[in-house]
């Protein structure tokens, strides 16, 4: 009874985590499947086809590379633009702050379908040709807000006395930024960029509205869902899942090692790199 009482929440938590991973295990298991019909939804027979012949189905790898390319460009651009905004918000006073805040908040409170549709409406009205450019424009737009929020939290979590100490120790404003501010905010910026890439890579709705004939990886899956998703898609998704997990775990573990070696400093919540926190 007492044991149950103190472990009840823990058991719920573990069950919730298991629930989160059920579909993931289905994806991974089905990547080793040899589907009976064209739909890869039921286990039939073990096969390595999806892995040994990963680009075997026309269009899969092309769409995968397209998504990586779009993700890299969008994440880079949005990180630069968003970081600049975050610095302005935290470090400068200016008129129109509430409008600025609203314009950053709204994209996060707007359903993707509305953003996708409204951009499409704009491009149609301007008769702007749809394709990779329009998709990248759209991705940068919806990633910026997430970058601003992430970097801003990091900047606000920074002790302002550190910069004052640098200035006290003969650093010019430029040197203060280069040797103190930037290195301290960098983990936040990298985390934001990683998040931006993930958001872009996995985005379907906004891309679908603005892609025209361009096929990104999610758009490929959407199309394939009607006629049967090839096992190769499961294999590629598994690769993405495992490598993302590896990157995050690596960053976290390295961060923890660093913190352990600096036992004198109390653990600062702002040092979790990929999971931006308050």
């Amino acid at each position: 009874m007492k044991w149950l009482r103190s472990h009840l929440v823990g058991m719920f938590a573990v069950l919730a985590l298991v629930y989160l991973f059920i579909p993931i295990s289905v994806i991974i298991v089905l990547s080793f499947n040899k589907p009976a019909g064209k739909f890869n939804i039921r286990w039939n027979e073990f096969s390595l086809d999806g892995w040994t012949n990963i680009c075997g189905v026309p269009g899969v790898c092309e769409s995968f590379l397209t998504s990586i390319q779009i993700g890299l460009i969008s994440a880079l651009a949005a990180t630069v633009l968003g970081t600049l905004i975050a610095f302005a918000l935290v470090r400068y006073r200016f008129r129109g702050r509430s409008t600025t805040n609203l314009l950053i908040f709204l994209p996060m409170a707007t359903p993707e379908v509305v953003m996708g549709a409204s951009l499409l409406a704009l491009f149609l009205n301007l008769q702007f040709p749809l394709g990779q450019t329009t998709v990248i424009i759209a991705h940068i737009m919806f990633i910026i807000s997430f970058v601003v929020v992430t970097v801003k939290a990091r900047l606000q979590g920074m002790d302002p006395r550190l910069e004052e100490a640098a200035r006290d120790l003969y650093a010019s404003p430029g040197q203060t930024f280069r040797y103190v501010t930037f290195p301290l905010v960098l983990p936040g910026i990298l985390g934001a960029a990683l998040l931006g890439f993930a958001l872009s890579f996995d985005d379907f709705i906004i891309s679908f509205f603005n892609a025209g004939t361009l096929v990104t990886f999610p758009i490929y899956i959407w199309g394939a869902a009607q006629r049967g998703i090839p096992v190769q898609v499961n294999a590629l998704a598994t690769i993405v899942f495992i490598s993302a997990l590896a990157i995050v775990l690596f960053v976290q573990i390295r961060g923890q090692m660093k913190r352990k070696s600096l036992t004198a400093a109390p653990a600062n919540p702002a040092t979790i790199d990929v999971l931006p926190r308050s």
């Binding site: 994806i27 939804i41 993302a244």
Partner: peptide
């Protein structure tokens, strides 16, 4: 704590569409 947080966000690393599609199997 850290590991569990990573596990919470980890499913998002697998494609949204595929995860939803996996529920067809489940």
């Amino acid at each position: 704590r850290t590991l569990m947080l990573v596990l919470v966000i980890a499913p998002s690393f697998a494609s949204f569409l595929l995860r939803t599609y996996a529920w067809r199997t489940i």
